[in-house]
Design a protein around this nucleic acid. Structure first.
Lengths: 135, 135
DNA sequence: TTAAAACTATAAAGCTACTATAATGTCAAT
DNA sequence: ATTGACATTATAGTAGCTTTATAGTTTTAA
């Protein structure tokens, strides 16, 4: 199959496929006489793997790491689990940070209503004066 | 004051100050005969405002928008409040997405322990087969 | 048969918000 | 005179693509 079909199959843009190849995440496929890339089912699986990892929030570097484990199937999978554990704690700390931020924003928003002039806006005043009661 | 002092005062790097100037977020300061930038208290306040906005997660474009409101102090501050409301809902949807992601990751992690070979790793199998029970 | 539409190729720039590096110039102190 | 701390500009790098430009190929329609 050619790049456009693969792209449609997995739901990405063709440029994204070329980009992954360039980044070393997808093996370079064979070429037709005209230079067009020819993909196999294996490529499709590889690409789908990458996309699912991306949906899980893994970075390209982390995906690369997972692929290196796949290439050596008889080592223990501790490293895989550790990678995931690290990622989970990363996601958790992001959540915590965003929740703290939400609190700050909501309390800032409560310091104003819509019926004022910019000059007297509680939100702008709050930011300007640093009344963001941190943490 | 010169750029280094301003940087230390507000807690940013000198390059960041030049960057904000280049992006039109800080007004270009006067220069000494040798070309060095000379900053006033006003610049300090402007920079502090930018930094507090950044801590609140606002983009440079949003900060720019806020500045344009500040320049016209007698219009109603509805737009400011709307900007903040939009940002709050943005943050909330990020939190929601990350919480869903965390669930997915945790259940994926539960499908494996450390005592397997990569070949039998529940995590890798889960990603490969798309057992990520979405949503 | 030919011309347009659709697909492919490469290379390079753009996006965000900086950070880092390079090469150079200025100033105070030793 | 030279070292050190500071300043200047210009350029590239970061992540993960997306967009644009330019060009060649294949397929479809007139």
């Amino acid at each position: 199959m050619r790049i456009g079909q693969l792209a449609q199959l997995v739901g990405v843009e063709t440029q994204t496929i070329r980009f992954y190849e360039q980044q070393g995440l997808l093996p370079p496929p064979d070429r037709q006489d005209n230079g067009y890339r020819v993909y196999t089912k294996k490529h499709g699986e590889g690409l789908a793997f990458i996309r699912r990892c991306r949906i899980l929030g893994l970075s390209l570097a982390e995906i690369h790491e997972l692929q290196s484990y796949q290439d050596d199937p008889h080592q223990p999978c501790t490293a895989v689990n550790t990678l995931l554990d690290d990622h989970i704690s990363h996601v958790r700390s992001q959540i915590t940070a965003l929740q703290a931020l939400e609190k700050q924003l909501v309390s800032l928003r409560a310091s104003c209503n819509d019926d004022r002039e910019v000059e007297a806006c509680g939100v702008l005043a709050g930011i300007s004066e640093g009344n963001m009661h941190q943490q």
